[in-house]
Design a protein around this nucleic acid. Sequence first.
DNA 1: AACGTTATGTGCGGTAGCGTACAGAGATTA
DNA 2: TAATCTCTGTACGCTACCGCACATAACGTT
Lengths: 239, 239
Amino acid sequence: MLEPHDFQKNALLGLLPEDELGRLMPHFEEVTLTLGQSLCESGQHMHHVYFPLDSIVSLLCVMENGASTESAVVGYEGVVGVSLFMGGETTPSRAIVQSAGKALRLKGQLLKNEFYRAGPMQRLLLRYTQALLTQMAQTAVCNRHHNLDQQLCRWLLLSLDRLQGNELIMTQELIANMLGVRREGGTEAAGKLQRAGLIAYHRGHIHVLDRQGLEERVCECYSVVKDEYDRLLNHHNVM
Amino acid sequence: MLEPHDFQKNALLGLLPEDELGRLMPHFEEVTLTLGQSLCESGQHMHHVYFPLDSIVSLLCVMENGASTESAVVGYEGVVGVSLFMGGETTPSRAIVQSAGKALRLKGQLLKNEFYRAGPMQRLLLRYTQALLTQMAQTAVCNRHHNLDQQLCRWLLLSLDRLQGNELIMTQELIANMLGVRREGGTEAAGKLQRAGLIAYHRGHIHVLDRQGLEERVCECYSVVKDEYDRLLNHHNVM
DNA sequence: AACGTTATGTGCGGTAGCGTACAGAGATTA
DNA sequence: TAATCTCTGTACGCTACCGCACATAACGTT
């Protein structure tokens, strides 16, 4: 049986009043997400929604030719499966585990029932979805206007914010896929950051050595997204 | 006083059951939107939501240096101001009228009241918001992977779908701003389409001569977005 | 220890779009 | 009619990233 403090590890669930959460608590189960696992295939029905704890999930747009790009990232601050309560049931995006870890999952129907009570859970999920909208819009503009170096910084910082440590288990090939560029492009950008002493990587492990250095190089897109999440999902504003 | 058939010109309102719409009908007012008019500034509170009839509105991400890119487009199939009912009240995006025309507007508080009844209007608005999510995600991937020619085709087709005629009042400079490229880049791409006989333009007026030709050149992003709108906002699915 | 696999480094030609500069032609105003 | 403004066309060097090819090195397996 899960303890109340387990739920605090997900920021959304942590914002819920106790009695609201109490109603759903018995129905949650903790699952372990493994790197590369798919939580949602394009156009397929999901059976659960996932509230990441220390795992990170990427929402990917996959194209006909197989190329893909991350449109948003979801960690402890969010939930995977907004299409369930938004009413569409499916989405053209894929959801892939980008960093292994734990998540709490709930049967889709149970979340929908709770959502349609039109109470705190609904308010919370809608505010979160708006944050997701912002992240996607900003990703679109970033893909257009900023160079790979800056985008890599943005990606690292967004990931770092969703991890407890400062190490990412991630090959340059995977990062490049997320950013929608060649593996070689990712290698070159990562090499620059390593030579600048901001990160150190080795065969699929990336250590962030100088977070502030990354923040100095990153484009504004990072803070636009972060500030909007903070505003929308701040305890004072939401309840 | 507006007649019931006025509301049918907006696809969202047209999907509402008569009694639901009837409750709100007296509170709508018809407004004329002019080219370039701003309906929503970044971070500012909106007082109304707008349901376009024959006008088109672009949602833009504006950056510090003034450069901007369209993240989504809204016409008769949608509504401008989702942040009101999503709970965030404001958004970092701007909403700019891209094609002059009429819209129905409603005081924000009235729409919120209706939304919180958790009835058909809520279901409809949430499904629409999910469609918007898809459009933004697809814009992000399109900006990354497809060249300007294809993106221009996508943009023209998305606009055309939201107009009754086949003429756009739009300078190449404005199109370039929407796509987030240089004016010269837009000129060159438009020139290719004109030489191919697909469009004819002259000082701010673009005539689409061969819609099918555009559809043959456009990237898949167009149909991904269109199909998802059709699915989510289809009469059979939504009510 | 030998081998295959995986992760990373590098080089090279190609190209799409950028920044800049300038020109011309239609529209508007004086 | 002249002057001005707006919209569009074109050219040129530059840069970032692509596509491809290949090299190197670390790790795991047997």
